[in-house]
């Protein structure tokens, strides 16, 4: 598995897209710092971008890489290697190289800017951690979708739909259900609704760390007492882990049952 991971990682690291992705983040972070001159504001703006873009790029990259490395997988399938190793290896290759682009692209400008002396370092680390989680989650989901669809166009379409659902439509439904059930106590519902969507969960984690929680009023207090405690943080990180784990498990199962 590690050999596969190594090859797909280096394959990707040398590809143009990794650089584009890396440079995009580099430029974004540098511009934000340059224009804003305020570390914590830059972190907030960056959050808005990361929450939406990281999943999108993870999805597109995952699907693209899967279909493009069809030959590579077929070559590997005839070799004495476990199927699960092949796909987990490929998946980790994509996820790790995307995470690298993200970490370096955003990390370098911030480090140069003097992040280590700033109080924002924890918010920033949390931002990067959730960014990495989202990369793994959405690459995993993208791999699942591509494994289940031989047809490239279909696979691509489903993957984009899935992203659209989790990034936008889910929140719409969430909002409607909150408004619809407004006569009932909603703390639990909003907590659960947040937990079920990795994008919402990441957004909430970062927002609460940035102490916008005060804006959230009573609900914020409920959220703060949940997410603010170590237990809450552990639960949310575990949920994110599950979001990584489930696609990976399904990937192994699906790949073991698939004909190539």
């Amino acid at each position: 598995m590690f050999k596969i991971l190594k090859y797909s990682f280096f394959d990707l690291v040398r590809s143009r897209w990794s650089y584009v992705y890396f440079l995009f983040y580099l430029l974004l972070a540098a511009t934000l710092l340059f224009l804003n001159n305020d570390l914590s504001k830059a972190v907030i703006t960056l959050m808005n971008v990361i929450i939406i873009l990281v999943p999108l790029i993870g999805t597109i990259f995952g699907v693209m890489y899967f279909y493009n490395s069809k030959e590579f997988t077929e070559l590997l399938l005839a070799q004495p290697i476990k199927r699960s190793s092949i796909f987990i290896g490929l998946y980790l290759g994509v996820a790790v190289s995307l995470s690298m682009s993200l970490l370096l692209g955003i990390g370098v400008p911030f480090l140069l800017y003097g992040l280590t002396q700033s109080a924002a370092i924890w918010d920033f680390s949390l931002l990067l951690i959730t960014g990495v989680f989202l990369t793994f989650i959405f690459t995993g989901i993208a791999f699942n979708i591509s494994l289940s669809n031989e047809n490239k166009i279909k696979g691509f379409g489903y993957a984009i739909m899935m992203w659209l659902f989790l990034a936008v439509i889910y929140d719409g439904l969430f909002l409607m259900s909150l408004v619809f059930f407004e006569d009932y106590p909603l703390d639990k519902l909003s907590l659960i609704g947040t937990m079920l969507n990795p994008i919402d969960l990441s957004r909430t984690l970062i927002l609460l760390k940035l102490d916008i929680s005060a804006l959230l009023g009573y609900t914020g207090a409920v959220f703060k007492t949940f997410f603010g405690t170590n237990q809450g943080l552990i639960i949310s990180i575990s949920v994110l882990f599950l979001w990584v784990l489930f696609p990976a498990i399904r990937m192994v199962r699906k790949s073991n049952k698939k004909d190539f």
Binding site: D11, E71, F72
Partner: peptide
Amino acid sequence: IANFPSNL
């Protein structure tokens, strides 16, 4: 069909 990873 000899298709290999084309980057290599």
